[in-house]
C-alpha cells in the first residue's frame, strides 16, 4: 500500500512512544500516507490501522476528526486560507476572495486542471502575520498581500 520509505517513516514515529502504544503514531502515519498518496483513501486508513493494530474505525475516527486530512482527492496544491477574526481584520477574507477570483473556484473546489484546491482554514496560530495561508498543510505563507499571492501562484504553476 505504501512505499518502504513511508513505512520507515511510520516506524520512526512508532519509536517515539512507549512499547505497546504504537497507536499514538496514527496521526503521523495518516499524515505520512496522505503525503505519499495526495489524499487518504479508505484502503490507506485501513492499512495504517492494521499496521498499528487498531480497529480501522478508530483510525477513521481520527482521519475525520482532524481537519488537515483529506478524505477526498485534492489538487496538487491545497491552499488553506485563514479567515478567522484576527486574519479577517487584516485582510484574510479579502485574500480568500482574491484567490477565489484568480483561480475561478470557491472553497472546497479544485481548479479544472487539478492544480489548486482552495480551503477555508481555522486559526493557524500566526495571526500577527495575517493574511496567512498554508500550502499542502506544510508550508506557511505569511502577510499574503495581492502581489505575494500572485508570486506564490506563479511559483506553483
Amino acid at each position: 500500500m505504501l512505499t518502504t520509505e513511508s513505512v520507515q517513516k511510520i516506524d520512526r514515529e512508532i519509536a517515539k512512544y512507549p512499547a505497546g502504544q504504537q497507536r499514538s503514531a496514527v496521526m503521523a502515519a495518516l499524515a505520512i500516507a496522505q503525503e505519499e498518496l495526495g489524499w487518504l483513501p479508505g484502503e490507506a486508513i485501513e492499512f495504517v490501522a492494521n499496521y498499528l493494530s487498531m480497529p480501522p474505525m478508530a483510525a477513521y475516527e481520527v482521519a475525520t476528526f482532524y481537519n488537515m486530512y483529506d478524505l477526498a482527492p485534492v489538487g496538487k496544491y491545497k491552499l488553506t486560507v485563514c479567515t478567522n477574526l484576527p486574519c479577517m481584520l487584516s485582510g484574510g477574507v479579502d485574500a480568500a476572495e482574491y484567490l477565489q477570483r484568480k483561480l475561478g473556484i470557491g472553497f472546497n473546489e479544485t481548479t479544472p486542471d487539478g492544480r489548486f484546491t482552495l480551503q477555508e482554514g481555522e486559526c493557524m496560530g500566526a495571526c500577527g502575520d495575517a493574511p496567512v495561508l498554508l500550502v499542502n498543510n506544510r508550508r506557511m505563507c505569511c502577510r499574503m498581500q495581492p502581489d505575494e499571492i500572485d508570486k506564490l501562484l506563479e511559483e506553483l504553476e
Binding site: 480497529p55 474505525m57 478508530a58 477513521y60 475516527e61 475525520t64 476528526f65
Partner: peptide, 10 residues
C-alpha cells in the same frame, strides 16, 4: 470486544 461502530467527524 470489537469496535465496529465509531463516531466519525466532529
Amino acid at each position: 470486544g470489537v469496535m465496529e461502530l465509531g463516531m466519525a467527524h466532529r
